[in-house]
Amino acid sequence: MGKAIRDVYGDALVKFGKDNKNVVVLDADLSGSTKSAVFGKACPERFFNVGIAEANMTAMAGGLASVGKIPFVNTFASFLATIGLLSARALGSYSKLPIKMVGAYGGMSDAYDGPSHHALEDIAVMRSLPNFKVFVPCDATETEWVVKNAIEDASPMYLRLSRDVFPDIYSENDVFEEGKGKIVREGKDATVIACGLMVGHALKAAEELTKEGIEIRVVDMFCIKPLDKELVVRCAKETGAIISAEEHSIIGGLGGAVAEALCAAGAQVPMGFVGTNDTHGECGPYAKLQEKYGFDPAAVVRKVKETVAAK
């Protein structure tokens, strides 16, 4: 059984940030939801709740970073990649300051709050910023590593998290490396390159596909930027078909990054994109939303079959 990613995040901030005096944490009146409040309780002198003022929060983080701090900026992904974008660009990206933008409630994980609170464009937006690195972890262990890595690596970063419980994929002995995707299942007929929620879904889809004689490789591409281009090309060559899977629009996110890598290397193979299809969502049960908007395990199964048939 997995853990709610937001809870893992709050605990990881304390675990890795408590004894590092340069770690500071900011929130915009959502700390109870993002779980940054856990750090606020442990280290109140290094926690800044700025009220409902996301633009100010992100620019403050730029100032904190410029005097040697490692600021974690917290709010919902939908607000961070919009209101926070100006400072992320001017102070993080352009000035290469180590602002850590943490988008809580990625995708449709804040299901019942509806489209205003869903984030389906954030990966595309944040990965377009020069110097920014982008991470989308798929389980508790990986989320912990992503937080630890954000403290150790002095780059501006976007960490895209979730409100929801993700099943455990890794054990504590697994190691992670920036820019290196992880093969979590082997298969010869196609490769599903997934991130976040979709890694677990791809593994479920793999079980279904096995019954129909299709064996898929599943790659956890938790580091979307810098992308593991070498692995992407290798998967294309070895399995002959690529399917990207993300809880995000199919425009400009992981799928876009993978397609860019394939084309740039001249390694085009049949490719399918799993994600939302240029649309906003609605409110409702998370599972229903995944089904209707095309990012549940069944959607992966459909897209794999379609893509394999095109080989």
């Binding site: 005096k21 002198e45 290094r46 800044f48 633009a55 100010n56 100032g63 001017a90």
Partner: peptide, 17 residues
């Protein structure tokens, strides 16, 4: 519009030190 916020972040960071 973002300069004052950035300056504030600097000021608070310097205070922490």
């Amino acid at each position: 519009g973002i300069g004052l916020s950035a300056a504030l972040g600097m000021a608070l960071g310097l205070k922490l030190d």
